[in-house]
Design a protein around this nucleic acid. Structure first.
Length: 363
DNA sequence: AAGACGGGGCG
DNA sequence: CGCCCAGTCTT
């Protein structure tokens, strides 16, 4: 049941609290749809501090949407390297090319039009529509779920279709006729600075007098999620194959899996934990294009645990020298020393490569 | 509706 | 170690 009195208290208190300068961001004070779109894609499931340097890199490399549309796929993946959720980078490029190819270089200026761009879902379409075009649409993101579930002491799960619809109605009502651009920025700043997941700043919150979760002492029980996180465990063995000319081999991940389109050292994935190099060379998954009698084992890295949100990956790097490595290998790329900078790698590999002492005996 | 998809920061 | 972050797409 709508509670317009409560809604108007919420929006006026929120806007009274809001000060755009408290959390400055380069895309906040502008209305350029390209930059707003770029920032919103980067910030999906990503903290502002983490995304900010990437935003700067992209704007510098591609000042306008046409520059991005004309970029090489590999250059864009390389610029995105390390940020995660790489489908965002692939869709970023697709969308830029769509804007240039099908919309004459001009971004759609409606919620529905924006939704047709790949990578632009309900949240991002609302954000761009309000920030860039002043459309009267409210954003629904993690902050909004948390703030509204608390303010109304509402235990409706946020991770179901019904829940999303419910909270969209709540936030639409709360925004009312307030300036959408201000309201949306205010509610997200408020979630980041005051109504935080932990250690919420209830002692100086402008909404305390009517916050139901505070009154009921349920602040840290909200919001409610229905689904539990499931985690998969995987075992990755990367083969670092170096020849006497200082060359090594990489391959691109093309399957529908983690790190799609990124590069890696030739990978053997096994179901068994704790496999040593000898057992690996005898394993059924050993690639047929490497004859083990041509290799000389050099060393093996310590086992690394690469912890992701949905996967725990145990990684070992196995170093071999390969005299007479072929000049060409179908489906693989032969790299010489400094060429790593042209290819995007997962963090577990860039971090490994960054260790100078490892690289020394590699080449 | 349920899974899949990264990486980092913080308690 | 578990949770969360300016979510979206596929199945």
């Amino acid at each position: 049941m709508p509670d317009s009195d409560r809604d108007s208290f919420f929006s006026s208190a929120l806007l009274g609290w809001y000060d755009p300068d408290r959390r400055p961001m380069p895309w906040k004070a502008i209305s350029d749809p390209y930059r707003i779109w770029l920032s919103e894609i980067i910030l999906q499931q990503t903290r502002v501090e983490q995304g900010l340097p990437y935003f700067e890199r992209f704007v510098t490399a591609y000042p306008e949407v046409g520059d991005l549309a004309a970029a090489e796929d590999e250059a864009v993946m390389k610029l995105w390297e390390g940020l995660g959720y790489y489908s965002r980078a692939r869709n970023l490029l697709k969308a830029a090319r769509m804007v240039v190819g099908s919309h004459d270089g001009v971004f759609p200026d409606t919620y529905a039009g924006l939704r047709t761009l790949p990578g632009v879902g309900p949240y991002t379409a609302a954000a761009i529509a309000s920030f860039a075009f002043g459309r009267q649409v409210a954003v629904l993101d993690g902050n909004v779920f948390r703030i509204l579930s608390r303010f109304y002491n509402d235990s409706t799960p946020i991770d179901t279709g019904k829940g999303r619809k419910h909270y969209q109605e709540l936030v639409d009502g709360a925004m009312g006729t307030a300036d959408a651009r201000l309201f949306n920025q205010a509610i997200m700043d408020f979630g980041a600075l005051v109504c935080t997941p932990k250690q919420a700043k209830c002692s100086h919150c402008p909404l305390t007098e009517r916050c139901k979760a505070l009154a009921e002492n349920t602040v840290y029980d909200l919001p409610v999620k229905e689904k539990k996180l499931k985690r998969r465990t995987r075992y990755f063995h990367f083969l670092v194959l170096a020849d006497e000319k200082g060359q090594t081999i990489i391959e691109q991940r093309l399957e529908k899996d983690i790190w799609q389109n990124l590069f890696q050292f030739p990978l053997i994935e096994t179901d068994e934990p704790g496999l040593g190099t000898n057992a690996l060379a005898l394993h059924a998954n050993w690639p047929d294009w490497i004859a083990t009698n041509d290799l000389r084992f050099v060393k093996r890295s310590a086992p690394l645990k690469h912890q992701l949100t949905h996967q725990t990956i145990h990684v070992v790097f196995h170093h071999f020298s390969w005299k007479g490595m072929p000049e060409k290998i179908s489906g693989k790329i032969i790299l010489n020393n400094k060429m790593f900078e042209n290819y995007a790698f997962p963090r577990v590999i860039t971090r490994y490569l960054a260790d100078k002492s490892l690289l020394l005996d590699l080449f």
